[in-house]
């Protein structure tokens, strides 16, 4: 692997992380899944000083996620849009360019729509959660695809929570 191609892959990985943020912001689950390998595994985790344990708040493979997202219209959901501010901190390409890991910071705002008392709240932006993305990629023909994403939250107070992946 040449240095040039590693840089190229890094750029592609940055791009795919940002494209994912845009797709998730739009609740465009399909575009997100298109960026994921079939073996993709997603989880939301946090560490609780209260019980002194690392916790998993949510997890699922690609098939499960697709099923859950398809089922969303049948659920009663808070539709207040979530918007991510993501900065890619590190990208590490390994395995001769066959795989990579990236760490990004993420801050998610909720733009209130129908959550509580919309006459007052709708249109207001609130900080929803903060944390980091720990992503792993599989790279084929120079093109990265998500193998896994762990969304490590700082928050343990999550109030109404969400039906949407973060």
């Amino acid at each position: 692997m040449t240095n040039a191609s590693a840089v190229e892959i890094e750029k592609k990985i940055e791009k795919i992380i940002y494209r994912t943020a845009l797709a998730l912001d739009d609740n465009d689950w399909k575009s997100w899944f298109d960026l994921c390998d079939d073996a993709f595994f997603y989880s939301i985790t946090s560490f609780s000083p209260e019980i002194n344990k690392k916790m998993t708040y949510f997890s699922g493979n690609k098939k499960e996620l697709v099923g859950l997202m398809d089922m969303l219209p049948k659920h009663n959901t808070d539709h207040s849009p979530l918007h991510r501010h993501t900065s890619v901190y590190t990208v590490e390409v390994a395995d001769e360019g066959q795989s990579a890991k990236a760490i990004s910071s993420v801050t998610i705002y909720q733009n209130m729509l129908d959550g509580i008392n919309s006459h007052l709240d709708s249109g207001e932006s609130r900080l929803f959660v903060i944390g980091k993305y720990f992503d792993e990629f599989k790279i084929e023909d120079g093109n990265p695809k998500f193998l896994s994403r762990e969304t490590k939250l700082d928050n343990r107070r999550l109030d109404k929570g969400s039906h949407w992946p973060l």
Partner: peptide
């Protein structure tokens, strides 16, 4: 039971 029936604006 006093639920807010419609939540959207």
């Amino acid at each position: 039971r006093g639920m807010l029936i419609e939540r959207r604006p």
